[in-house]
């Protein structure tokens, strides 16, 4: 975290000092994009891991309800993953827009 911040700090410094506004936008956008996606991936990563783990446990305990559990697992993954994907969209926006 602090490493990322210091990288962004330095990048922004460099951008302020010697680049034109367009380049500054690109460089700081790239640094911010990396941070945005990296941070956005943490929570959903933990969440999906926990979710799938619990789903597998449920399936192992009650194999007869595996179908329902799998459907709900995909639903949960879809909702959790949306956060990471919003981070990805922010990444695209910062990097390319």
């Amino acid at each position: 975290m602090s490493v990322l911040t210091s990288i962004a700090y330095q990048v922004a410094e460099v951008a302020q000092e010697s680049f034109t506004a367009d380049e500054a936008k690109q460089v700081s956008g790239a640094a911010g994009a990396g941070m945005a996606y990296g941070l956005a991936a943490i929570g959903p990563g933990i969440g999906i891991g926990y979710l799938v783990g619990q789903a597998v446990q449920a399936m192992a305990r009650q194999p007869e309800s595996a179908g329902t559990v799998r459907t709900n697992m995909f639903l949960g993954i879809a909702f959790t993953e949306a956060l990471a994907l919003i981070g990805f969209v922010v990444f695209i926006l910062l990097k390319f827009a």
């Binding site: 911040t5 700090y9 922004a12 410094e13 302020q16 367009d22 936008k25 700081s28 956008g29």
Partner: peptide
Amino acid sequence: QISVNAATLLLAA
């Protein structure tokens, strides 16, 4: 620095 960064970004945008 982050606020400066954001300001730069906004300005550039």
